[in-house]
Design a binder for these strands. Structure first.
Lengths: 204, 204
DNA sequence: TAATATATATCTAGTAGTAGATAGTTGTTA
DNA sequence: TAACAACTATCTACTACTAGATATATATTA
């Protein structure tokens, strides 16, 4: 996947050479996804990247700035993946299956859960900047899923009685919750099964 | 609600006079539910309870011990509430609505999310003891929900094609995820709506 | 071209503050 | 008196973060 938008940061420092900044973001994302926002330190990142913790502050003045960048990057990349799925000429149901597949593959390959799901569960200890990014993520997701549902309805494979705008956030929520619980119960199947349950119920 | 089982702890110190220990557990639960396991300190609890942080170690030698006690107590109390619902002679669907209501009321009144949902999202930074408690919680929940679903099916108000054992964890996961996202989007309605979506889909 | 200036990205060394945890002491209660 | 439950005082390790120096690369100017 390509690095596109590191300048989404509201903070000052632009950082002309984004390779290292991106590297820091990637490690931060992985650490947040496995241990949470309050579960990692600048030193953890520094040790992994191979620099000193003080050097991270050059790229991201505060931990909040880093989290904002990590969440913004995560959101952007997720949107790219979804845009890619939408160009594959799939049916609505297949798109929703592919959507769930993104969650499943993440959990399967890395053992990590959704970055914004983790941040949301620590919501009270986040700055407003990070909260905003988390909020935007979930809005993104619901919009994309609602579109896929309507597509499936137009093709006659999803029940027309379903309210796409109401079911979309429920589908997203279900996958987020199932992903988090799946990790704690050591079974990707928990997530896969939940996704199938939701989908089977809305199919004609 | 009554304090029942503080001795579920695997650790040594029994603490004959459980009032203060229970007070500490209650504050710890609230802090975990709002800021996460890594988002609070012994000093936070001490300041709220009105003792010194060192005194907490008398009741709970380590932070992990405290988290285990908090999770075990949470699980026990949740089971009491569910047992209470089950004695109210409700239909299966009404029981499932009451179940969702427990989540909604918690979020509405305290702004807090499910303790075990939070812990699960920080899973990688938990000790095995805490992990076990979290795991047990979700097993509990699925068992109770599956029973309610089968009850609804027996009464003919829930579709007989639904696999109760497979849908139960999906329902629990959905409510957990919706609860976490609802807080981050500042709307209890997000949770209420998701609960209704799931239920409407399985009704006859 | 050579000298100068600026920017980038890192370092070392340090700040004040907080984390969980421990040892030993004191008052209180059964 | 003995158990309990708190205390004071302290420890080590770590937290995010900062100041100032340095090396290197890139521009700009004499």
């Amino acid at each position: 996947m390509q690095f596109e938008n590191a300048m989404t940061q509201t903070t000052s420092k632009p950082s002309q050479h984004p390779a290292r900044a991106q590297e820091i973001i990637a490690v931060a994302q992985s650490l947040i996804q496995s241990r949470g926002y309050n579960g990692f330190s600048f030193r953890d990142i520094a040790d992994t990247v191979g620099i000193k913790s003080a050097s991270i502050h050059y790229h991201f003045p505060t931990k909040s700035d880093l989290a904002v960048a990590a969440a913004a990057d995560y959101r952007a990349k997720f949107l790219e993946i979804l845009a890619d799925i939408a160009t594959q000429n799939l049916t609505g149901v297949r798109e929703l299956q592919a959507y769930a597949g993104v969650f499943e593959i993440t959990l399967e390959r890395s053992g990590n859960v959704c970055l914004c799901g983790v941040l949301a569960s620590e919501f009270e200890s986040l700055t407003d900047d990070v909260r905003g990014e988390v909020d935007r993520f979930f809005k993104d997701q619901s919009v994309w899923v609602a579109r896929a549902i309507r597509k499936g309805q137009a093709d006659g494979e999803i029940q027309s009685t379903i309210d796409a705008e109401a079911f979309a956030p429920a589908y997203v929520s279900g996958l987020e919750g199932a992903m988090i619980i799946a990790r704690s119960t050591q079974s990707v199947d928990h997530l896969r099964s939940a996704a199938n349950q939701y989908l089977n119920l809305i199919k004609v």
